[in-house]
């Protein structure tokens, strides 16, 4: 869900700043919360992370940097960016531009894919990596559906793929205001543009995941119907030394369904 001003105000402790960066052809809005060691938060295509309570918690001890991915929530998506791989170069530019060091990257779903595209190219500014129900690779054969089709299935079915308990979905489409509906439309258009084909993955990425040398944690919802835990195991296998933890009673967004359990793993990994 787009970060509403009210959501930001709710927490008086973590100071939030908002800045727009001109990178390549794009205008990228970056929100920063709190201070301390930097965490780069790469949101999912559903953008639940931006107003989530766990971000406030992270911001108590860290500087949480949340770019709005071009195409989402006001950041512009130029014609020159046609894939998540294209997108990753923009983020490498952003890391340079902000002169960040020892960054922990945490990526959710498509954000996890983006994190891998960044880390496989240049990890000089990175320290640790957390992938949460990440997409981005294909493990199995041509006839296997590794990543569930969110476009072919009914909205109700897709919700079931995404959530262990559908009542925990913070977004009810029919309750959206006109502005929220338009934001959501733009976000879904951006996702389709970047992820329709090849479907939510880069066929080459799995062959270069070996380049990820930083400490990596994969967090997965045990009931994720979009990318199953078997997919997660395949993912983890490709990143040497990585650790995979699953969270029960959670689907594609464990940080939404089981935030405490989720934070327990994150905090332990950040220590």
């Amino acid at each position: 869900m787009p970060a509403k001003k009210s959501a930001v105000r709710r927490s008086p402790k973590a100071r939030t700043t908002r800045k727009t960066y001109n990178l390549q052809e794009a205008k990228v809005i970056v929100e920063t919360k709190g201070s301390g060691k930097p965490i780069l938060l790469l949101h999912s295509e559903d953008r639940y992370e931006r107003s989530a309570a766990f971000v406030e918690e992270l911001a108590q001890k860290h500087r949480v940097i949340m770019p709005m991915m071009p195409g989402y929530d006001g950041s512009t998506l130029p014609d020159s960016i046609r894939s998540i791989e294209d997108m990753s170069y923009l983020y490498l530019d952003l890391l340079d531009e902000m002169n960040l060091q020892d960054v922990t990257v945490i990526g959710f779903s498509v954000g996890g894919w983006l994190a891998c595209e960044i880390a496989t190219k240049n990890d000089a500014r990175l320290k640790k990596l957390i992938l949460v129900d990440s997409v981005g690779i294909k493990n199995r054969g041509a006839y296997d559906r590794d990543i569930q089709d969110i476009y072919y299935n009914t909205f109700a079915k897709v919700k079931k793929f995404k959530f262990h308990d559908v009542k925990k979905d913070p977004r009810v489409l029919t309750d959206m205001s006109d502005d929220e509906a338009l934001d959501e439309a733009h976000a879904r258009e951006a996702t389709a543009r970047l992820c329709w084909d090849p479907y939510f993955h880069n066929p080459s990425l799995r062959y270069r995941l070996n380049r990820i040398k930083i400490k990596t944690l994969l967090i997965w919802g045990a009931n994720d119907g979009i990318v199953k835990t078997s997919y997660a195991r395949g993912f983890a296998k490709k990143i040497k030394g990585s650790k995979l933890v699953t969270i029960s009673k959670a689907g594609h967004f464990p940080h939404v369904e089981q935030p405490q359990e989720f934070m327990k793993h994150v905090k332990a990994f950040l220590r």
């Binding site: 489409l173 959206m176 006109d178 509906a181 338009l182 959501e184």
Partner: peptide, 8 residues
């Protein structure tokens, strides 16, 4: 806009 109306 039409797509937004479809979603809601």
């Amino acid at each position: 806009q039409l797509y937004a109306n479809f979603l809601s």
